[in-house]
Amino acid sequence: MSGSPAIKHRRIYQIEAKPRTLKVAWGRDDIYNSPSIVYAFGGHGARSSDAHLLMSIFEDKLRYTNLVSILEERGYDKTTLKFSVALKPEGEAPATNRKRYSLKKAKPGELRVYWGYPPEDRHTKQLCYVWGGAGAARPDARVVSNAFEEWDVNNPGRERLENEWSRLGYGREQIQRMLGPKEPSETLLEALIQRGYDMDTLHFSIRQKDAA
């Protein structure tokens, strides 16, 4: 009589970022912490405040919704989430020839984001969103697009608090005094570019639970 098949456990790694790099992945900060989504920054220009920008989009509980919670509701496994981006090289970078146009693909069940040339515009680099079927679909890619290119990283939760306090009877001027001045609105894409990150190095991916 054969025994039950052995359950294969994934190894939980300690997440570290290379110098001048931001990295997000499921793992541990160190051997003493439980597994979670880790936001690592490698120093030499990559700062904790930059990592906080990513956290404000991926998991900030102040928002009505955050990216990870939306994707989990759509069947994605947060333990497969991966994101990385690096600062541009210091000093004058040598001129390089323009890379040949290529459309990257996603594996079955995977959502993927990269910087490149979409099929409809082979002359302007931008964030490209691809999905591999098997549960990963265009509407899911649209969710990620909204998070990267429309959500405000500088004022997370402000609109929610304004609405909640207004329902409690506070006046607009009183609410503004309580919250303080609003920061200039900025998307994650705009913030990363403004802070000197090289979009050619950006990578984001996450997979459906059944594909993990």
Rank of each mutant, 00 (worst) to 15 (best):
L202Y: 08
F148Y: 03
I12C: 02
L53K: 00
G180T: 06
R20G: 11
L22V: 09
D152Q: 11
A25P: 02
A6K: 11
D210T: 13
T96W: 06
T79Q: 11
G91I: 03
Y64H: 15
A40G: 02
S69K: 07
G133S: 08
E110T: 04
W115Y: 13
L81H: 04
T124V: 14
K82P: 00
V68R: 05
D198S: 09
A40N: 00
H123Q: 14
K125I: 08
L202M: 09
P118E: 11
D50T: 06
K78I: 12
R122P: 10
R28Q: 14
P5Y: 06
Q14L: 09
K105E: 14
I175Y: 05
R122S: 13
V113Y: 03
R158G: 03
R47M: 15
K125H: 08
A17I: 04
M199P: 05
G27F: 00
L62D: 15
G116D: 07
S84M: 06
P5T: 06
I193N: 08
W115K: 06
E150H: 15
N146Y: 08
F41I: 06
A51N: 04
K18F: 12
E149Q: 11
A17L: 02
L67W: 04
E73T: 10
N33M: 10
R158H: 03
I12E: 10
K82A: 13
A141N: 01
E72L: 05
D29N: 03
A191L: 05
S166L: 09
A136S: 03
R177Q: 12
N97L: 15
R207Q: 07
E190F: 04
P89E: 12
R11L: 15
F58D: 00
Q174D: 12
V68H: 01
I193G: 07
R158D: 05
F148K: 00
Y64M: 12
D30Q: 03
G135I: 04
E90F: 10
S166Q: 10
E159Y: 08
C128S: 02
M199F: 05
G91C: 02
K61Y: 10
T201S: 14
R47E: 14
G109R: 01
R11E: 14
Y32V: 09
S102T: 13
P181M: 11
K182T: 08
Y114A: 08
E183G: 10
V38N: 06
R47H: 14
R63I: 04
L62V: 14
I37L: 13
M55K: 11
P108H: 00
E59N: 09
L62T: 15
T79I: 06
K104S: 13
H9G: 13
G75E: 03
A46S: 06
R138C: 13
N97P: 07
Y197N: 03
A106R: 01
A40L: 06
N33V: 09
Y39G: 05
K209Q: 10
D140F: 02
N33R: 03
R160L: 12
V143C: 12
A51E: 05
E149G: 13
D60A: 12
T124Q: 07
V85W: 00
I12T: 08
E150I: 09
S84C: 03
A25N: 08
